[in-house]
Every structure is written in structure tokens, then in C-alpha cells.
């Protein structure tokens, strides 16, 4: 069970969280203007990173907030967590896991 650092509540056990898929995928502002391919990409295409991966979590059984995290998928170590709408912390993607 991972420990996830909720940007609002602090470090909490994974049991309280729900995974929310890949981070930083914005819903097109006007879906009617997207091509079928663009819409398909938004809906279905996700990266499958080996290494540092930006993902969403929701502190579902805590404060209820969605937030983003950088996790190294090879070690399960988190490099950073940050609030929705924020950019990944600068340079954090280059940092190696402890």
C-alpha cells in the first residue's frame, strides 16, 4: 500500500485514494470542433510510461479532492504531488526516485 501525499491533507494511505488515470488531459473546449481522430485521441489514447508518469488521484475517502502526482512506475516512488490546474513542479521530472 502506497503512501500518497495529498496536497491538502498530507501523507495518507493509498486505501483512501482512487486512481484517476493519466494527468493533464484536458477535455476539448468545444468538442463539436474536433475531428473524429482528435476526439478518439482524447477519449482513448494514453501513454504507458515506464518511468516518471503524471497521473491523477482523488483523495476519495479524505478531502475528496482530485490532484496530480508524478510517480516512477518502475519503483512506485512519488516524486511530487500537486493540485489540479497546476503544472508539474519544475525539474521534478528529472529528479530520480530515492
Amino acid at each position: 500500500m502506497l503512501i500518497i501525499d495529498c496536497p491538502y491533507c498530507g501523507p495518507r494511505p493509498e486505501l483512501e485514494f482512487a486512481h484517476g488515470g493519466q494527468a493533464h488531459i484536458a477535455r476539448p473546449a468545444d468538442p463539436s470542433q474536433t475531428t473524429d481522430d482528435e476526439w478518439t485521441e482524447y477519449l482513448y489514447l494514453r501513454v504507458n510510461t515506464k518511468g516518471v508518469y503524471a497521473e491523477r488521484w482523488r483523495h476519495a475517502r479524505g478531502c475528496g479532492r482530485f490532484f496530480n502526482a508524478l510517480r516512477d512506475t518502475t519503483t512506485d516512488q512519488f516524486l511530487a504531488t500537486y493540485r489540479s490546474g497546476e503544472k508539474p513542479p519544475v525539474g521534478s521530472a528529472a529528479r530520480s526516485a530515492p
Binding site: A18, G20, A26, R56, R58, R65, F66
Partner: peptide, 13 residues
């Protein structure tokens, strides 16, 4: 409920 929160918190702020 989770879907509503998702849209409110991350898309339609």
C-alpha cells in the same frame, strides 16, 4: 458523485 466532482474540480472550474 465522483464523476460530478471530477468535472467540477478539473474541467469546469
Amino acid at each position: 458523485f465522483a464523476m460530478m466532482e471530477d468535472f467540477l474540480q478539473t474541467e469546469w472550474t
